[in-house]
Write a protein that binds this DNA or RNA. Structure first.
Length: 376
DNA sequence: AAGTAAACCAACCGCTCAATC
DNA sequence: CGATTGAGCGGTTGGTTTACT
């Protein structure tokens, strides 16, 4: 049995994506929404396999993606989630809405693994219990402890329950639903948030810690934004199904900021709520867990500033992230499970950052299970 | 300045799973 | 009920950039 690879066709292009390809893909998705990837190459004329299109979209082109500059807070969440979930990057990414699984995976492999290895080497012989916090560098190098396995199982149960809830369309009123956010909403009311202008917000090269890749297109989203702007202004003929959305696209580019406000009043109201809840809960969690946070900082000696990133974040960044959150939420239902709806992020973060409370893990599991049970 | 190693990350590959035929 | 298909996930690779000698 086994499925033949989708990319072994002759004539399928590989390697880095060009701006033109991105434009084609983005405009197609703007028009039709993400999904049905099989039809994307044929409908767009892209010489890419469907897999490659999906990957390009989810890992790079999708709005609301934050790139580079992992904050200490994010680092800690990744470390703890990795300890809990193992290398299940998609699950981990679901708790970091602005990060892709690929990004988190890369960051883990290139930064955190080494960092933890170093720290572990420093603490070696003193604090072996930290193995379960990912200090082994690779949680799969050693047999999973019983407790860890159980937690993993519990998480699986929770996720299964959540999936079932979604399948049964049992919605919470204050949570954006993967089922209530219709495609119509995406393509009409929410479409402005999908605007390519997001590149300028979400991928700010000036804030990047790594200024390289300047000549590499794939790493410079600003190029896409510029290209798309020009493209939309000049309305070139691209091998995409051209409709009157071209004009819409151009309008969207020029009125991006206004449209964000529009979203607050239109279909984006739900997404706005989520955007707020995501950012505020994060900050709330920070204040609620300052002690644990500090303990964590002191334990790991991360080169973090005294204040958390969420506090040091400028107003502009907050706004930008908020806008990004909105856009992110609009597509989240198609790309990621929305676990925040089941376990409040603040609670999760509290648990994640609370190293000093040994029962915190069980508490969260119990609560999450209760939440899941409450939905039935 | 040139060569080399290390770091980084986008993209690919192969697998699994669920839905459909 | 088995085969096929589409989609998603995690591991890995390869190209590019940066740091070091």
């Amino acid at each position: 049995m086994g499925r033949p690879p989708c990319c072994d066709k002759v004539g399928v292009k590989k390697g880095p994506w060009t701006p033109e390809e991105d434009i084609i893909l983005v405009s197609y998705i703007q028009e039709h929404g993400p999904g049905n990837w099989r039809s994307v190459p044929t409908n767009t004329g892209l010489l890419r396999c469907s897999k490659s299109c999906r990957l390009r979209w989810t890992n790079y082109l999708r709005p609301g993606i934050k790139r580079g500059n992992f904050t200490d807070h994010e680092e800690k969440m990744i470390i703890h989630l990795q300890a809990l979930l193992g290398n299940r990057w998609a699950a981990i990414a679901s708790y970091l809405p602005q990060r892709t699984d690929n990004d988190i995976k890369n960051y883990w492999n290139t930064h955190l693994k080494k960092k933890l290895k170093k720290l572990h080497a420093g603490l070696d012989g003193h604090d072996h219990h930290n193995h379960q916090d990912g200090f082994s560098g690779n949680s799969h190098d050693q047999p999973i402890s019983k407790g860890q396995w159980e937690r993993r199982l519990q998480t699986d149960i929770h996720m299964a329950k959540q999936a079932l809830c979604e399948a049964l369309s049992i919605d919470k009123p204050n949570v954006i639903s993967t089922t209530t956010a219709s495609h119509d909403l995406h393509l009409q009311d929410l479409k402005p948030s999908v605007n390519i202008g997001n590149y300028n917000i979400n991928d700010n090269p000036s804030t990047s810690t790594r200024p390289h890749h300047t000549s590499t297109y794939a790493s410079n989203a600003e190029n896409i934004a510029k290209l798309l702007e020009n493209w939309m202004k000049n309305s070139p003929k691209v091998s995409v199904h051209q409709t009157n959305s071209d004009q819409t696209n151009a309008d969207q580019t020029n009125s991006f900021n206004n449209n964000n406000n529009d979203n607050d009043n239109k279909g984006g109201a739900t997404a706005t709520t989520i955007g707020h809840s995501m950012s505020t809960s994060s900050e709330g969690a920070h204040s609620a867990t300052t002690t644990a946070d500090q303990a964590f900082d002191s334990l790991f000696s991360f080169n973090s500033s005294p204040s958390d990133v969420s506090q040091s974040m400028s107003v502009d960044e907050n706004n930008a992230n908020f806008i990004a959150d909105q856009a992110s939420c609009l597509f989240q239902d198609e790309s990621k499970p929305n676990l925040e709806g089941q376990v409040p992020l603040s609670l999760l973060e509290k648990w994640l950052l609370d190293d000093t409370a040994p029962h915190a893990h069980e508490d969260l599991i119990n609560i999450s299970l209760e939440n899941g049970a409450g939905l039935f």
